[in-house]
């Protein structure tokens, strides 16, 4: 348990660093030098040292919202397996809990956005809710497919104990399809380019950025940290899925679909150093791909975003059909 905690803390601490990879990639592709890798830390420190300014319209909900959002994402990260290492917490059916918890954070951010009484923030909130409603469908379809393969409903059973089953029943192509679908969800939930441009300067077209226009100081810092952690969460989901399984099975003695997590706190499973490297490499490549996607295409019209999200639904349906065994 100690091992997981330390590893999780390390990843939480380096998540701003990982986030910087995206902008470095973008800078590299257009031939610029780019920001330093520690740039996000500077920003955070700068923001944490500032004072806050509040609009006179707001209610205490506005102040509480970033805190609830950050605590929700931190709690969610505790349920996340990190490369074949079972997560800190886990219980039967925790997938539902995790994604409803993420919704809780989102609800409070939306409330805070509308709380300011600004029309632009209202617009951003409406878009955020609408698009993530579509994303929710895709996510649940993915978990339906995972459930069909492993008969379990928790993240650790997909990526740790049931990993072998998942990878043996679903061959390479379905796994790739699902990772692409998850990648679309990642772009959607983290407001990256084809869905939303984090660098845009026009409030009318923003989605996520416009919701937080009125935040300042440490609150804004908390929001930045939250979005970096959220990015890490989705990227880690993808890399968990893509993480090769063979190297693990020889080392870790795992009985297929064994209810290892009968307790909330899971048993310690040894994570060799080499696997950690593989996991981190996949993680970094996910960030790099985000950067490549951002620099290779513009953002979609707002009307086209639902189509983009729902096209990933098709991929998941295809993957489900491909893994169909009677």
């Amino acid at each position: 348990m100690m091992r997981q905690l330390i590893l999780l803390l390390i990843f939480i601490i380096i998540s701003p660093l990982l986030y910087a990879i995206i902008s470095r990639t973008k800078a590299f592709l257009v031939g610029k030098k780019g920001i330093p890798f520690l740039f996000n830390y500077y920003t955070l420190i700068k923001l944490f040292r500032k004072n806050v300014i509040y609009s006179k319209t707001i209610t205490p909900i506005f102040k509480v919202a970033p805190i609830i959002n950050l605590s929700a994402i931190l709690l969610v990260l505790m349920f996340l397996p990190l490369g074949n290492l079972s997560p800190l917490l886990s219980f039967k059916g925790d997938v539902l809990f995790i994604f409803y918890l993420l919704t809780l954070g989102k609800i409070f951010m939306v409330l805070a956005g509308v709380d300011t009484g600004s029309s632009f923030e209202g617009m951003g909130c409406a878009r955020e809710v609408f698009f993530s409603a579509l994303g929710e469908i895709v996510l649940f379809l993915i978990f339906i497919m995972f459930y069909r393969l492993t008969n379990q409903l928790e993240l650790s059973s997909y990526f740790v104990e049931g990993k072998l089953i998942l990878h043996s029943k679903a061959t390479l192509i379905p796994i790739i399809f699902i990772s692409i679908a998850l990648f679309v969800i990642l772009l959607l939930e983290n407001a990256r380019v084809p869905v939303d441009d984090p660098l845009t300067h026009l409030e009318l077209t923003m989605i996520h950025e416009v919701m937080i226009l009125d935040y300042s100081g440490p609150d804004l810092g908390i929001i930045h940290l939250t979005s970096q952690l959220k990015m890490f969460f989705y990227a880690a989901l993808i890399s968990n899925l893509l993480m090769p399984v063979t190297s693990v099975m020889s080392i870790v003695p795992i009985i297929p679909v064994m209810p290892v997590t009968s307790g909330m706190f899971s048993v310690d499973v040894i994570l060799p150093f080499s696997q950690l490297i593989v996991f981190t490499a996949i993680l970094i490549s996910v960030y790099v791909i985000v950067g490549v996607v951002e620099s290779s295409m513009g953002r979609y019209q707002l009307k086209r975003v639902p189509k983009f999200v729902l096209s990933s639904l098709v991929l998941v349906v295809l993957a489900t059909i491909l893994t169909w065994r009677g």
Binding site: V52, I53, Y54, S55, K56, T57, T116, G117, S118, S119, F120, E203, L213, D214
Partner: peptide, 10 residues
């Protein structure tokens, strides 16, 4: 004053 700024309305 912390509480006396209007909302940012672009």
């Amino acid at each position: 004053d912390d509480h006396n700024v209007p909302t940012w309305d672009c």
